[in-house]
Nucleic acid binder design. Sequence first.
DNA 1: CCGCGGGCCTGAGAGC
DNA 2: TGCTCTCAGGCCCGCG
Length: 293
Amino acid sequence: MPELPEVETVRRGLAPVMEGARLTKVEMRRADLRFPFPKDFVRRLEGKTVTGLGRRAKYLLADLSSGEVLMMHLGMSGSFRVLHDKGEATPGKYHHERSKLSAHDHVVFHMSNGAVITFNDPRRFGYMKLVRRAELDAHPLMKAIGPEPLGNAFDAAMLASTCAGKKTSLKAALSDQKVVAGLGNIYVCEALHRAHLSPKRRASTIADRAGKPNERAQALVDAIKAVLNDAIKAGGSSLRDHRRTDGELGNFQHNFRVYDRAGTPCPTPGCNGTIKRIVQGARSTFFCPVCQK
DNA sequence: CCGCGGGCCTGAGAGC
DNA sequence: TGCTCTCAGGCCCGCG
């Protein structure tokens, strides 16, 4: 499910009920997700205040008053829901809320402001880890991640220097979290279409021999930023699992130009091409062979 | 170092 | 209705 816009949508939904609130009770409803839960998971969370909720790549990062950071990854099918955000948490209400839990609600956070937050993940590719804040950047899951695409540091020069010398395809390069953070199958396809670049093009061809950006690099950076901003404004894309934390669907799937649209006319003005599906690295790629070169 | 394929899981949808 | 097969938004690991 979740690429950067979906994770950011979740973050914006959770921040108002998590930031400044204390974790009064944490329920683990199974012993593992993709990985076993951290040792003493519940003990290290309960009683701590969430001082901030951030995002890096596709990770949600909850800063805790203990100095630890709760890293949360949604995998393919993870979602958070705020079940109850009114009134005070009381044992009586807790009983009422429990009846709303469903089969794949694996973790439940009870907050001091009355909010009850569930993490649901049918496929269990998601996971949670606890790391000391000071060690976060050096963590094996974090240290190799590339620049945030919506940050000022991500520009044509940076992307070109990273891609210079790469023999792999643009599709594979942009899907690599070490090249740029947070893109996945949907937004790579969408960004390449907006930039009129073929997913099969060699990544190195957005740079000259010295590694400097050409006009393709600039078009690609502009397209990546634009599609991510548009998708965040729409609350992300809901194909099957993604929901906002209030349970509502995202809307960006209605604005896809190529993703899952094989056989439909290319939406580029003046292009008479037809969207095609191919397979790259065992994943579907959607593109227009006419206007993406 | 790099690229590729397999694997981790469950569920939805298509085809028979 | 129900079985089987394929595929899915992520990412790690081992192989050559």
